[in-house]
Each structure stands twice: as C-alpha cells, then as structure tokens.
Nucleic acid binder design. Structure first.
Lengths: 142, 142
DNA sequence: CTAGAACTTGACGTTGACGTCAAGGTCAAG
DNA sequence: CTTGACCTTGACGTCAACGTCAAGTTCTAG
C-alpha cells in the first residue's frame, strides 16, 4: 500500500502519516523511486496511534509505548510509563465525567422554567449584572 | 478579593484570570486605581471554567454556555449547544476508556512473560524488524 | 518614607499535531 | 508522450491557553 491508501483506510491525512513517521510512530519501506510502501497492518497501527492521541498521550510518550505493544514485554521503566499513562487517562475520564455532570445539571435546570427548585448551582452563581451583559453578548453571537 | 487571591484559591495563574476576562469568561469590578476586584464567588466560577477546559471545551464555547449557567435558562440554540457539548464529552469519555482498555491489555501482556496466550493484540501487530529498532531506540531514551 | 510585594497593560514566546503552499519527481491510462 | 493523479522534501502557518518578560503603577508593612 502507498501512503494515500493507508490515509484513506485509516481516516487521516497523508501529512499526518509523514508526521507519525517523523515522530517514530510509524515506519515504511521505500520503493526504488523513494515512495513509501506500507503493509496492510499499518492501518491498524495508525488507528492505535490515533486512539492514543485522542486520549491525550503526546507523541513522545506514544513512541515509548509502542515497542511494548510490538514486543509484548517492556522494561520496568516502560512498564511504569504504561501504568502512569493509564492512571492519567483514568483521571482524565473522571474530569470529563465531572464536567458532563455539570453540563447535565445546567441542562436540567434550563429544561425547567423554574430554576429555584435547584439551589445547588444557583448558590455560587454569578452576579446578576454580569449575567445580563453576557447573555446579551451571547445572544448576538448565537 | 484581588486577582492574586483568586488565583491562589482557584489554583490558577493571574495570567489565566486576565485571559479569562479577555475571553469573556470572567468579569471584574475595578478600584479607582484600576486594580481588579472580584467577589468570593469568582473562585467557584474559575473552577467551573477550568472544569470545562479540562473537558476540552474551547473558550468560545464556554462563553456561550456560561449565560445559561448564570440565568438558569437558555435559548434553543444555547440548549442545543449544551446538549452537543454533553454528547461530545460522552464520546470523548468513550475514546479515553477505549485507549485505557488498550493500555490495560498491553500492561496485561507485558506482565506475563508468555505473550502468545493472547493473540488478540499480536495479530495486527507490527513487523518484527521495526519492533527491534524501535525497542532499541526506546531503550536509549527511557 | 521606603522597600518590596502585588498589580497594570502590552507584546512576544511556547507547544503539539498537524494544514498548507511550493517546487518539483513518479506512475498509470490513453 | 502527455495529462493528471499521486508522491517527495522543505518550510512556514495555525490555533489555543496560557508563560514570560518589560516597564511602569499601587498597595502595604515597618
């Protein structure tokens, strides 16, 4: 496979694939003319890399994790790195869940015309004069 | 409260607070000499903003959400925005969970010296020659 | 009154994962 | 052989959420 096909099947840009290679996340053979040639497994590889990027893992860290994926074992340092990333992701999930709960609360309040039945959010609420200005500005923008 | 105290209590930098104000996420009174003066509720406000940033909500979107938080109700567009962000966060959580599961699987494999008992991950694995190079490079770095 | 901590605006720097344009070489079809 | 899709390297642009420095003003403690 050449780069365009991998990009299509993995759903990323060719620029991204060259960037991955530059960062040591992906390798390629070269044809005599210099074009990159990938095995079919490259598509799955790219999807895995994308998954890590989505999880907020930086490329340098991914480059350290991938050998463990390939060999199926790792040094103690790599193992610690794996665990640290896992914990970091767990924390990130909790942060996201908290934010979603906050949004759900806001949605719930906004869904009922009488907001005073839920003082939990209104207690630390903002000053009224601020609200009015901000609401007006937002109304112009939305 | 002045800006330094809010920053300390909220656990952010003063630069961040000025940035929030610049982006319309935070307002302040001014003393006659021009210094910013915040109510105590500003700390909670900043924490909420931080929570949204953690969830990956950009400042422009937060600026559109906050009026709903303040007033307790929103326009249909704002309501749709709330729901869309909630869904986006839900998807992000799923992505994170998937990445964490992938890491857990890697950790599990790396934890047992015999990786062949789990062909699920090794099937789409990378070419061996790539693995060796990458592992050596990673060993140098880790 | 004076030192120093805290504050102001303004402006440029940083980081990461690419986008995008430039200026070409390569490959398949007709 | 030519056209057009696809590929190459190189280099600069982007965007967001601040960090950081500059140069000056203000508050506070002694």
């Amino acid at each position: 496979m050449r780069i365009g096909e991998v990009a299509r099947q993995a759903g990323v840009s060719t620029r991204a694939l060259r960037y991955y290679e530059e960062q040591g996340l992906l390798t390629s053979e070269r044809t005599p003319s210099g074009q990159r040639e990938y095995p079919a497994a490259a598509v799955e590889r790219v999807r895995l890399v994308q998954q890590f990027f989505t999880a907020g893992v930086p490329s340098r860290t991914i480059a350290q994790l991938l050998p463990c994926v390939d060999t199926g074992h790792g040094s103690p340092e790599a193992f610690a790195l794996l665990a640290a990333e896992r914990d970091r992701i767990t924390d990130a999930i909790e942060g996201l869940a908290a934010a979603r709960d906050a949004l759900d609360l806001i949605i719930d309040i906004a869904h009922h015309p009488t907001p005073e039945h839920c003082p939990a959010l209104r207690h630390p609420a903002w000053e009224p004069h601020v609200t009015i200005e901000a609401a007006a500005t937002a109304h112009d923008r939305v």
